[in-house]
Write a protein that binds this DNA or RNA. Structure first.
Length: 325
DNA sequence: AAGACGAAAGTGGTTGA
DNA sequence: TCAACAACTTTCGTCTT
């Protein structure tokens, strides 16, 4: 029933690493004049011959780090590997953990009589990480957020934005008295719109099992309390997604967006469902470019009826003089 | 036979008294 | 709270390819 949340921050990429890969292999003699008097210019990143000026290598890329560290502390501070901190995990992906080995920081073994104390500390530290009801609710909410957004196929950026929105509303005590699922759904809806990758209330409702009406209500509440101001969604934002589901080309996509812009100028879009408009323009665009799609297919993916597609299509053709058929 | 078309009746949400 | 309303849906018969 539930998707298991995957902590993507911990995914690692394995690549073969050559030993001393960043060391530049310096040629020792010039192929032109056979002189061994070569010059390495670190500013221009090239190796040239001092005698004849022949450039042996250019655009050399130094794969090493640009910093140096003289002790452990500096190294820890300057090194940049590891998962980035993310708002989508309860502790932002930066937990503190006490190591399991019974050795202190200097590598000395911890005396037997203190072992019990250390075990106890380790246990407490683990518990403290998700402490208090607030933190615990946040952890629940964020796993719910992950579940819902993967159902909606939202990219990481939107998830993180949704997490930020949820965190701010939790901070402002907006969640009290409302269901976590409902607030998470509203955060996702808001974030998706803000990132110009809108999902309809129907879609979010489907993914979250929260009533459409409730999500709308929560959305307005969040938008008001956090003063998030969003323009009404443009049909153009739906076009790329619909087009890719229908397997339509980029040419058709841009044609459809073109039609949307023209209709906007003529004020044909006010009060019309953006999804219906997006679907209808995609239909028109593919007809104009000679690609056959059925009204039924287009209507289905936009979750509108065929009749709506026909109505939009009729309107646009009349008002924009698109009499190609 | 599948798809397009359009009329007519029904539905759910918004608006204004 | 309720009626009016616009947008949209469902249904169905007819036409076109």
């Amino acid at each position: 029933m539930y998707d298991i949340p995957i902590n993507r921050g911990m995914e690692s990429i394995r690549m073969p690493v050559q030993k001393d890969a960043h060391r530049i292999e310096e040629p020792d003699i010039c192929p032109e004049c056979k002189s061994s008097d070569l010059k390495f210019d670190s500013q221009k990143a090239e190796i040239s011959c001092r005698r004849c000026g022949y450039v042996l290598e250019d655009s050399i890329v130094d794969l090493g780090q640009e910093w140096r560290a003289f002790n452990h502390e500096q190294r820890a501070k300057r090194t940049r590997v590891g998962a980035p901190a993310t708002p989508a995990i309860a502790d932002k992906g930066l937990p503190t953990e006490m190591g399991k080995s019974n050795r202190d920081i200097n590598g000395r073994s911890i005396p037997e009589r203190n072992r019990f104390q250390y075990n106890r500390l380790r246990k407490l530290n683990k518990r403290m990480r998700i402490s208090g009801t607030g933190e615990r609710n946040l952890a629940i909410a964020l796993s719910e957020l992950d579940r819902q957004s993967s159902r909606l196929g939202l990219p990481r950026s939107v998830r993180e934005d949704a997490a930020i929105i949820y965190r701010s509303s939790a901070k402002k005590n907006l969640v009290r008295g409302r269901s976590i699922e409902g607030m998470v759904a509203a955060s996702i809806y808001t974030a998706a719109r803000r990132c110009n990758l809108p999902r309809t209330l129907d879609e979010v409702s489907e993914a979250s099992n929260v009533k459409k009406k409730q999500i709308g209500k929560n959305y307005r509440f969040i938008a008001r309390e956090l003063s998030i101001k969003l323009k009404p969604t443009s049909p153009a934002d739906y076009v790329p997604r619909f087009a890719s589901v229908l397997g339509l080309s980029g040419e058709i996509e841009s044609k459809a967006i073109n039609i949307i812009n023209q209709s906007k100028e003529q004020g044909l879009l006010t009060g019309r469902e953006p999804t219906g408009v997006a679907a209808a323009t995609l239909y028109i665009a593919s007809m104009l470019l000679g690609v056959r799609v059925t009204q039924k297919d287009v209507a289905e993916i936009a979750n509108v009826s065929e009749v709506t597609i026909r109505n939009r299509y009729k309107e646009f053709c009349e008002k924009l003089n698109l009499s190609a058929f």
